Computed example of a mutant assay.
Amino acid sequence: MEIIRFAELKAQPWRNGGGVTRELAGHPVAASSRNSTEQDGGRDWRVSIADVSKAGAFSAFPGMDRVLTVIDGELLLLTVDGAEHPLEKYRPFRFSGDADSAGALPTGDIRGLFVLTRTGAFKGYTSIIELSKKRAHPVFEGQFGILLQGQATVGPGTAGTEPGADAGAGAGTAPAAAVEPRTLDQYDAVVGSDATTPEILGRGFLAVVSIDRVAE
């Protein structure tokens, strides 16, 4: 069961000085992928959290798709190819990395969850769900569960195991019942798995990011 601790991530400044980005996860560009540039960091996909503190242009990512979700702050006015889109908190918005885009901050600084995927190779999705203390939310392979607000714990579940098998059991692995739930801090990310199927319980809001490979 893998947890990416937000507090341990290094902040990287934007080229235009308008904010900083912390990369939660990324996938190196495949040898078969084309149109990779230094600008996209050599990634087929990337999940990151950025602090936006200054209005201005967003960096272009040719050949990539983006999903942006405001996760802290009230409003981002995003202009994409001349069209203005008011992005409220917890409302994912998809746009092309090729587009001429810029952001304005009418209500102050914001923090955004960015999902970047190479067009034609991967497709990214972001969903915002409300957590429950009674019904655990599973995180499957190809997904990340990111705690946005509230309190939550994560433990290995049973959704990915065969009937009669111990969840998480295997060579050198303790049964699920023997694994203590681990506390999540704000913006920590749980890496999904079909083997142990991590399950999140708590109160608050969770971003579920899915990275799907596009069939050839």
Rank of each mutant, 00 (worst) to 15 (best):
E2W: 14
I3H: 06
F6P: 00
F6E: 03
E8I: 02
L9F: 09
G17V: 10
G17H: 14
G19I: 03
R22T: 06
R22D: 05
E23G: 00
L24R: 06
A25L: 08
A25S: 10
A25T: 07
G26K: 08
H27M: 14
V29H: 02
V29K: 03
A31M: 12
R34S: 04
T37D: 08
E38D: 12
E38T: 09
R43P: 00
W45S: 04
S53Y: 00
S53G: 06
K54V: 02
A55P: 02
G56P: 14
G56I: 13
F58I: 01
S59G: 11
A60N: 03
M64T: 00
V67R: 11
L78D: 12
V80A: 02
E84R: 13
E88M: 10
R94Y: 06
S101V: 08
A102E: 13
G103W: 03
T107P: 00
D109E: 12
I110K: 00
G112W: 01
L113F: 05
V115I: 08
V115D: 06
V115S: 08
G120K: 07
G120L: 07
S127Y: 05
I128T: 05
K133N: 12
K133D: 10
V139S: 01
Q143V: 01
Q143K: 05
Q143N: 05
L147M: 07
L148A: 01
L148R: 02
Q149E: 15
Q149R: 15
G150T: 08
G150A: 06
V154M: 14
V154W: 14
G155L: 13
G155I: 01
T158Y: 13
G160L: 02
T161Q: 08
E162Q: 15
E162A: 15
G164Q: 11
G170K: 03
A174L: 15
A176N: 03
V179P: 06
D185L: 14
Y187V: 01
V190D: 11
G192M: 11
E199D: 00
I200S: 08
G202C: 05
R203A: 11
G204D: 06
L206M: 14
A207M: 10
A207W: 07
V208D: 09
S210P: 00
I211C: 05
I211Y: 06
V214G: 05
